[in-house]
Structure formats: structure tokens, C-alpha cells
Amino acid sequence: MGIVLAGLLVLLVLERFGWMLAVPREASMPWARVALAACLALPEVLYVIALWWIRRAMREIAAGQLFTPVVTLALQRVGLLMLVGAALGVLVLPSVSAALGAPPGHVIAYDVSKVVIGALGLALGIVGRLLRQAAAIQSELDGIF
């Protein structure tokens, strides 16, 4: 799984910054374009980090540990990363892109897929919190019986 995540990061860097390979060495680097590409890649970086946390949670689940702190924390972090990445993509990045010299566009880039990713992230965070409470209840019941 680590190889897959490394491959995803390489593809992300090549997609966002591959144009830099075509800039002649004697030409000056358009730093506003580099900053714009870095800002636009931020939600995708958050999604790749979320995949890393999913990997950790799946490893625990495969070991038969359903209510461990690692699983609940991973679900909450994945949810938060997905929610923040989607919110950045919809609410923040259009204005930042315009400020960095991109052609004028929308103030809010309403994209259904990003809204769905944000909603799923919110749901995962809630499920993680519910699992943490269920683990606390289970340990309390184990102490009684």
C-alpha cells in the first residue's frame, strides 16, 4: 500500500508541476504559476494523507481490532481531511486562484463531487466519534461483567 501512495504522490506532483520540466533553463520561473499550482494541489494532498490514515485503520481492522483508538482516530482524521479538502476546493481556492493571477472566475466553485466528498468526510467523522463512544461503553460493560 505504501508503494501505491508513493505512486499517487508522484502522479500528483507530475500533474500539477510537470509543466516546469518544459520551462527553458535560461527563462525565469513564473513563481505566481508555481504558487497557484501548489495551492490547487493542497486538497489533493489532503486526500492522499486521508488514504494513509485509511491504510492504518484497515490494518487494525484486518487484525480484528474494530474498536481500537487507532481505528476511531483514523476515521475521525480521514473525515476531517476530506471535509477540509472539499471546503478548500469549494470555498477558498477560487479566490486564492484569482489573487495569484488566474483568470477571473467564481468566488465559490460549487462542484457536486467536492460537496459529496465533504459530506462523506463529515459522515466518517461522526462514525469515528460513535465508534469511540461504543468502545468506551464496551470497556465499561466488560468491567461490569
Rank of each mutant, 00 (worst) to 15 (best):
S139I: 06
G64D: 08
A134M: 13
L51D: 01
R55M: 12
V78T: 06
A86K: 02
D142F: 00
V115M: 11
R129Q: 15
V78H: 03
F145G: 11
F145L: 06
S97Q: 08
L8P: 00
L81N: 01
Q65Y: 08
L9F: 14
V115A: 14
A38Y: 04
R77W: 10
P30W: 01
Y110P: 03
A32R: 14
A99S: 13
Q138D: 13
L130N: 10
L88M: 08
L91M: 09
L51G: 05
A109F: 05
M82K: 02
M20Q: 05
L12T: 00
Q138G: 02
S28A: 12
L73T: 15
I49G: 01
L12H: 04
V96R: 09
L81I: 04
A99I: 09
L122A: 14
A135M: 09
S95Q: 15
G125Q: 04
G64T: 11
R77M: 10
L120S: 05
P24A: 15
G64C: 10
M29K: 07
V4R: 08
W53E: 12
L83C: 11
F67D: 06
A134K: 11
V71P: 05
A123T: 08
L66T: 11
P30K: 02
P104H: 10
L131T: 07
E15H: 15
A27F: 14
V90A: 05
L75P: 04
T72V: 06
V115F: 07
A35V: 05
A109G: 05
A27N: 15
K114D: 09
F17A: 07
P104K: 12
E44Y: 14
S113R: 14
L66P: 07
V23Y: 07
M58S: 13
A41F: 06
L75G: 09
W53I: 03
A57E: 02
P24R: 15
L11G: 06
L42W: 05
A123S: 06
A57M: 10
V10K: 00
A74D: 10
L36S: 02
G7I: 00
K114Y: 11
L21S: 04
Q138L: 09
H106I: 10
W19S: 07
I117N: 06
L66F: 12
W31Y: 08
L124F: 08
Q76D: 01
R25Y: 13
A32E: 09
G7Y: 00
A74L: 04
G18P: 07
G7W: 00
M82L: 14
R129F: 13
L120K: 08
T72H: 07
F67E: 05
A35F: 06
R16L: 03
P69M: 12
V23E: 06
A109T: 04
I108M: 12
S97L: 03
S97D: 08
S97M: 03
V4D: 05
L75Q: 04
G89E: 01
Q65M: 09
R56I: 10
F67M: 13
G143M: 00
I108E: 07
V96C: 11
E15S: 13
W19V: 08
L81R: 02
A136F: 05
F67W: 13
S139M: 10
G7L: 00
S97V: 03
W19Y: 15
L100S: 04
V70A: 08
A38M: 08
W31D: 02
L81S: 02
G64F: 09
V23K: 09
